[in-house]
Nucleic acid binder design. Structure first.
Lengths: 223, 223
DNA sequence: CACATAAGTGAACACTTGTACACATCAGGT
DNA sequence: ACCTGATGTGTACAAGTGTTCACTTATGTG
């Protein structure tokens, strides 16, 4: 979904295809167009309605059929972002088997997803300091959810059992932040520069290891 | 500097003041105007030349006398940002006396500076995922410098001496990232909500403590 | 089938935008 | 004293912007 298809039908002024336009298709095209523009290096905050509709191969008026403003579109993108994150978590839970490689493999899965949905994560990184308060809060909320799920998983795996609930939350929050920041590193190197991507992955892994070492020895200094 | 002064002279079409306009005054007004707009909630990437010059109380054409484009202005703002960061470091070095309160006091100084130069740090947070590659790289570079200075300070204070140079750099990088991310928390709460600001400060402090606990026990697992 | 509704279209509006040009003013060096 | 450059100003224009309006078309439910 959200692939960049080059306006399959020309500038046909009339819809003559026998194939019906499935409902919500334009809505998706608009969201995907915004993401594509972000993926091309534009900042979401600088996108205009006309620009988005042009990229989507749709007349400007159509935009209002689905969104009230660009910020509104952003909000709906945040919702979709939630789905992407959930998919990523599911895959991580399924694939991370050996506890000793937990960090490494989780980071690998994260990097893979970030690469596969580059525009999406780019949008997320931008939105964190974006100009729409609502989008900002939405992304922050997704991150909180992610952190709380991570805490649950750690509890379920009987890891970090010496930590109080609030300290575990603290740890997971720090983990999520660290990963989120790595996003900006990852997205600033070209997607197919395997060496650089590998460097980011290694570095992120070490960051997380350091955080978990800190968490493992946390109680001793809580006095 | 860069205070928001409300266009002291009116819409005078001619410059009749006996007081000479000191050189570079308009340049500063333009930079300050851009920062003001960012401080008002706009995103830097969405600012236009006319908007900036309007806010600065200057005719659009003047912009080109000092900058080639908005991105160019952004680059020069990054340079100024460097100065702000250096001032902050100097103050931190001067005021942090007792090693046991090192983290707490450093965070307090950071928060104070971030509050005092809100727009500047807002600009920095935005620029990290901004649309100008050059600005992005500039901010990243400032952060690297900051991290390396922090590493030097730790060495000078004979702290974390068990860490190799690369591991110390890793630690400092993680510290700087963590603080930078806290920026987005800090800047998303209203500036005069002392309670919330205090919460962010406490949370950031605990993050850093956890990182340093991790660093303190790092060697044991480097095998 | 008829009909309400959702989705798409093109033309038009009043603004705003970036940029170019020609001109005015002043500072400083020779 | 005079020129040169840096700086600031007003005007102008073509292109792009958000938004509204009236119109068509297809869908699904009674």
């Amino acid at each position: 979904m959200y692939t960049c298809e080059p306006d399959k039908r020309g500038t046909g002024k009339q819809m003559t295809d026998k194939q019906r336009r499935r409902p919500g298709e334009t809505r998706e095209k608009l969201m995907s167009a915004a993401l594509d523009l972000v993926g091309k290096g534009r900042h979401f905050a600088s996108l205009g309605i006309r620009e988005i509709t042009r990229q989507a191969g749709v007349v400007p008026t159509s935009f209002y059929r689905h969104f009230r403003s660009v910020d509104d579109l952003g909000l709906q993108l945040v919702d979709e972002l939630g789905l992407v994150l959930r998919r990523m978590m599911r895959e991580a839970r399924a694939n991370v088997l050996q506890a000793d490689k937990l960090i490494e493999e989780s980071v690998a899965i994260f990097v893979a997803h970030a690469q596969a949905n580059r525009s999406f994560f780019l949008f997320m990184a931008q939105g964190l300091a974006g100009e729409s308060r609502a989008v900002q809060e939405g992304i922050r909320s997704e991150m909180r959810f992610f952190a709380s799920e991570l805490a649950n998983d750690l509890r379920r795996l009987r890891l970090m059992e010496h930590l109080s609930d609030t300290d575990l939350d603290l740890t997971c929050d720090l983990v999520v932040r660290t990963v989120a920041f790595s996003l900006t590193d990852l997205l600033s190197v070209s997607a197919d520069d395997d060496y650089q991507v590998g460097q980011v992955r290694k570095r992120t892994t070490r960051f997380l290891q350091m955080v978990f070492v800190g968490a493992a020895h946390w109680n001793s200094r809580s006095a």
